[in-house]
Amino acid sequence: MDIATIQAYGYFFFTMFLTIGLYAYIYHLYKNKKDEAGVDYEEYGNMALNDDIVDTPVKAVSEKKHK
């Protein structure tokens, strides 16, 4: 077995490792949509698209001030 064959196997296994890691990370992100406080940050994903002044806000703000 020469060095080119070892490099080819290394490249293949490293690519497989990174692919599996990427899919595991994506699964982790979609499985845990809410953080510990229960806030779902996926609602904020369209904030850049819906940024006109007449669009509805992502999270409603009440007029009352908490003291």
Rank of each mutant, 00 (worst) to 15 (best):
M1V: 09
M1W: 13
M1E: 11
D2N: 15
D2K: 12
D2G: 12
I3H: 05
I3R: 08
I3T: 08
T5E: 15
T5Y: 11
T5S: 15
I6L: 15
I6D: 07
Q7Y: 06
Q7N: 11
A8F: 04
A8V: 02
G10Y: 05
F12W: 11
F13I: 13
F13L: 14
F13D: 04
F14V: 05
F14L: 08
T15K: 01
T15W: 00
M16E: 04
M16K: 03
F17Y: 14
L18S: 03
I20V: 13
G21W: 01
G21R: 01
G21Q: 04
L22I: 07
L22W: 03
L22T: 11
Y23S: 09
A24S: 15
A24F: 09
Y25A: 04
Y25K: 04
Y25N: 00
I26D: 01
I26C: 05
Y27M: 06
Y27E: 03
Y27D: 06
H28M: 06
H28T: 02
L29G: 01
Y30M: 04
Y30I: 04
N32R: 13
N32Q: 11
K33M: 05
K34R: 15
K34Y: 10
K34E: 15
K34W: 07
K34A: 11
K34V: 13
A37K: 05
A37L: 09
A37Q: 14
G38Q: 07
G38T: 03
V39E: 05
V39M: 14
V39F: 12
D40W: 02
D40H: 02
Y41D: 07
E42R: 05
E42Q: 08
E42M: 07
E43N: 08
Y44N: 06
G45Y: 01
G45F: 02
N46C: 06
M47K: 09
A48P: 00
L49F: 09
L49K: 14
L49N: 10
N50Q: 14
N50P: 00
N50F: 09
D51W: 02
D51N: 12
D52C: 04
I53S: 12
I53H: 12
V54L: 04
V54C: 10
V54F: 10
D55Q: 13
D55I: 01
D55W: 10
V58K: 03
V58Q: 03
K59Q: 14
K59M: 14
K59P: 00
A60C: 14
S62K: 05
E63D: 11
K64Q: 14
K64V: 05
K65G: 04
K65V: 08
K65N: 11
H66V: 10
H66W: 10
K67P: 01
